[in-house]
Design a protein around this nucleic acid. Structure first.
Length: 308
RNA sequence: GGCACGGUGGCCAAGUGGUAAGGCAUGGGUCUGCAAAACCCUUAUACGCGGGUUCGAUUCCCGCCCGUGCCU
């Protein structure tokens, strides 16, 4: 077999670009892809959905024609993509790209998704069970926690006991498999070598970019996009709870003004950026992340990584 | 100019004669099949200024300044 240039000898090499929203990840990825003959995999929980373009700052058609982008537009908003789906497809995309002799560049702001590749999560075997979840969700939070203490005490000691969603998932696993949820969370040694680039800006600059970007989205027709998604899928479609979408709900019922929508999206986006950074800081405790402000700063890291 | 109401931490806003709730914003954190989701924790030389009454005033009284509304 003819080894692809980046897949030869040792572990296969992957570039990872992470960072808060609006910091400039996509542009950096595009630049590096062009420079180092790469292809891009989007690690973004919402860019996977068709029709959610403006609100997710999806790469433009032109960019996508210039450089192949994977895991964008792979589903409609009424067929949710889960972590497991995404991880599976990302792994396929990675090998496809490497077999083509290209450099995979994983880019995104969804920390969980990135971690699932970086740390090679082996997800617990239990699949989501809609009817079980529905039944569990009828219980009070304390009761859910009580149940978990009984059937899976090990997980109960570590879980956030107020977080119903996590409680339901843990119970779902314990009930359907009879084994401990926590015990089934596995990380395996990864078969890849990563060059992790953190893309961020000083906080005041990031805030400014977020604010500007939200206004640009509105000018680009975000309201129209939201309306057409709602018409097609209704507000029940879970992806529409995303920032940039959910804020329009009250507006469309005439209970919120446009100016309020904008301020809300800006604020929620700011918070998102903070939470994203929390995740990345945690990741940074276990991995080296080269933090850069400017595109050019990333080049030496990548070059050194590819040579080593 | 007159009358009325108001001036409490970055913003909004309770409240009491014995130094002050809460919300928002901010900051930190959690996270293995909904993750742009769902959660947890959290800072603070805050009572417009000056005087008076009082053991003690943010709270009562007087004056001033500022804001808002109404009137002339």
């Amino acid at each position: 077999m003819d080894p692809a240039p980046y897949a030869s000898k040792r572990k296969a090499k992957i570039i990872v670009i992470l960072g808060p929203t609006a910091a400039g990840k996509s542009a950096l990825a595009l630049f590096l892809a062009q420079r180092f003959d790469g292809e891009i995999i989007s690690a973004d929980a919402l860019q996977v959905y068709r029709g959610m373009d403006i609100g997710t700052s999806k790469p433009t058609q032109a960019d996508r024609e210039a450089i192949p982008h994977h895991l964008i537009d792979i589903a409609t908003p009424d067929e949710p993509i889960t972590l497991a789906d995404w991880q599976r497809r990302a792994q396929v995309a990675l090998t496809t790209i490497m077999q083509a002799g290209k450099l995979p560049i994983l880019v995104g702001g969804t920390g969980l998704y990135i971690s699932s590749i970086l740390e090679n999560y082996k997800l617990p075997a239990s699949k989501p069970d809609a009817s079980l979840r529905k039944a569990l969700e009828r219980h009070a939070t304390t009761s859910l926690y009580g149940q978990l203490c009984k059937i899976d005490p090990q997980t109960a000691t570590r879980i956030d006991e107020h977080n119903r969603r996590r409680l339901v998932r843990a119970l779902e696993h314990a009930i359907t498999t009879g084994s401990s949820f926590y015990e089934n969370q596995k990380q395996r040694p990864t078969e890849f070598e990563f060059c992790i680039i953190g893309c961020n800006l000083p906080q005041d600059q990031l805030t400014e970019r977020i604010n500007e970007r939200v206004i640009a989205m509105v000018l680009a027709g975000l309201e129209r996009e939201v309306k057409s998604l709602v018409r097609r899928y209704s507000w029940r479609a879970h992806p529409l709870t995303a920032i940039g979408y959910k804020e329009w709900r009250e507006y469309l019922m005439r209970r919120r003004k446009l100016a309020e929508v904008i301020v809300l999206i800006q604020r929620n986006t700011r918070r998102l950026a903070k939470r994203q950074m929390t995740w990345f800081k945690k990741l940074n405790r276990r991995h080296d992340i080269a933090w850069v402000h400017a595109t050019a700063d990333a080049i030496p890291f990548v070059r050194g990584f590819l040579k080593s």
